Structures are given as structure tokens and as C-alpha cells.
Computed example of a mutant assay.
Amino acid sequence: MKKILIFGTIAVLLIVVLLWFGKKNKASVIEYTTDKLITATIENKTVATGKVVPLEEVEIKPNISGIIDEIFLEEGVIVKKGDLIATVRVVPNEQSLNAAKGRISSVEIQVNNARISYERSKSLFDKGVIPRQEFENSELAYDRSKQDLANAQSDYQIILKGSAGSSGMANTNIRATTTGMILEIPVKEGYQVIQANNFNAGTTIASIADMSKMIFEGKVDEAEVGKLSVGIDLEVGLGAIEEKKFPAELTFIAPKGTEENGAVQFKIKADVELDEDYFVRANYSANADIVLEKKDSILAIKESLLQFDKKTEKPYVEIKTGEGVFERRDVEIGLSDGINAELISGVTEEDEIKVWNKASKDNDNNNN
């Protein structure tokens, strides 16, 4: 009985093994497709983020302090040099005004004294009592005192009204100093403004720029700035105009970088070639595509065909040597754009390269 059980167990195990081998033989064999090398143009690009701004933006500031009396133009208007933008009403300083009045009174006394002296000298000169030189000195003193009075009165008018006499170009008239578009008028009627001087930049009444001359201002990382050079071409894309790319030329690379979030960034500038069909506004956000390196019509391999050794991290492919038989081949690659990579060595144009369409234990064994 015991022998029957032993032989029965062996028979069952044998049947199980035979069934397993039969199922294994019926399993479908993994079939791989193949691909070959291609000829492609590969570019290594970087993107600089920034904005487009006018090449020159002029800020208009008053030559006298006061209050905005009236604004004649609005933002977006095209102006010519000399156009009136606003007027300023002078609010005189009481202390300066009193000082100016006191000076007028003082000079008037001097004028009266000089006039009396002049009239006396003239009478004596006409009678032949005094020489001509003495008379001319008296006349000169009288003329000087009258000029001093005119200057004092003029200073008083400037303090009081901002201009002297009937001057057509009074300091209270704020005019455009260049031709262009008014980008901004940051003040309103009734605002107090301060004149520009050696100690104060003054209040900006308007900013004007030529919108036909725009530049791109952006920043690039220190790892890529060494690959740039003045004169290379860029393509500028604007967030507000998605369907259009504007060509540009790099004109400036900052010699000094600034640290931002732990990375050193370098400022760049580029002249943008505008299109008359699109109106580009100042401070549009923009991205500039910069070609760091480019190779035309070179032998390339699709990066999807590459595998990397787990130990050495070097790339390799598998080349078809027979029906269902593949051989590992190490390759050397160069410039890559993320889709295709330049092939330097390891594969020929005639080689059929395995397309990695399914993971298998064989693949894992090849990596080890």
C-alpha cells in the first residue's frame, strides 16, 4: 500500500510538470519591432523669461513746485516735442514771498536816493560846476539801482506766479520734451508736485516713449550665460500675443549676476523686430527662445531607442543579428534636444535597432 502511494504521488507530480512545460511552450514569444538612424537638425535651446519695454522712456518732471491745475492729455496719446501736457499752479512760500517784498522796498529806497543824486549832479554839470566824470558816475549808479529794482520785482513774480512778466514758456506749463506715446500720467488735478533739483528727483507728471522701438529684458542662469554672445538671434514670444513670435537680436549681457532663490541670474537685452499688424504694449511679459547650439542634417538616433546601464549609466542599444536575436551595442551620443540625439559612434545606418516596446526579464538581465 505504501509503495502505491509513493508511485501515485510521483505520477501526479510528473503530470503537473508535463502540463507546465506544455503551457510554457504555448506562450507567445515577445516580438520586437526595429528602427534605424535618422538625419535630423538638432538644437539645444534655453528660455529666458522677462518682458518687453520701450528702448527709451522719458519722465517729464516740473521745474517748479506747486499743485496740478489742469491736465490736457491722457495716456495713450501720441505727442510731439513741445506739446502742452499740464499746468501747475504755484503755491508761494510765505517766507520767501515776504523776503522778496522786503527786497523790493529796500531797492526802491536806493532808487530814490540814486535818482536825487543823479538830478543834482545833472543840474551842476549843466552849470559847469562839476566835471563830466562825476556826472557819469552818478548816472551809472542811478541806472544800476533801476536794474536792481526790476530784478527784485521779477523775482517776486516768479515766487508768486512761477514766471516773470508775460513769458510764453512759463515754468508752470509742463510740456513734452520728446516725441512719442504717453505711457502713464501718475498724477491728477489737485496733486501737489515737487520740482526736480540736486536733492530731489522731482514728481513725475508723465512718462513718454517711442513705442516703435522695443527691447526684450530678461534673465538667464549662470550655467547658460557662458554660451551666449552678443549678436545671436532670439525668438520672443509674448503672453498676450500667443500666435506670433517676434525675431530679436541679443545686444547686451550683464557682466555681473544677481542671486535669486539660490541661483545666480544674468540680465540680458535684445532688440525686438516688431510687426505692424500687432500693437505691443510696454511691460508685456515675454519668453525668449535662445539657441545655444545647433547642428544641421546630422546622423541622429531617437532617444526612445536608448537604454542606460544601471551601473555605468552609459547609453546602449540592441542590434538585430538574426530572427528574434539581438546583440547589445554601446553607443556614444552628443547634442540632444530631448527627442533626438546626435550619434557619434556605436551604430551604423544599416543596423536595425530594437524598439523597447515591452519590459522583460531579459532586458533586466542585460542591464545587470
Rank of each mutant, 00 (worst) to 15 (best):
K2R: 15
A11R: 00
V12S: 07
F21R: 12
K24M: 11
N25D: 07
A27L: 14
N44K: 12
K45W: 06
T46V: 15
V58N: 01
G66H: 08
G76E: 04
G82W: 00
I85W: 01
I85V: 02
A86Y: 02
S96D: 09
A99L: 09
K101T: 03
S105I: 03
R115P: 00
V129M: 04
E136M: 02
L140S: 14
S163R: 10
A170K: 09
R175K: 06
G190P: 10
G190C: 04
G190H: 01
G190Q: 07
Q195L: 11
Q195V: 07
A201L: 09
M211Q: 07
E217R: 11
L238P: 04
G239C: 03
I241A: 00
E243V: 00
F246N: 11
L250K: 03
P255C: 10
E260S: 13
N261H: 10
I268E: 00
D271H: 02
R281M: 09
A282T: 11
K310H: 11
P315M: 12
Y316D: 08
V317T: 14
V317G: 11
V317K: 13
I333H: 08
G334I: 05
L343I: 15
E350C: 10
D351Y: 10
I353S: 15
W356P: 13
N357V: 14
N368I: 02
N368W: 00
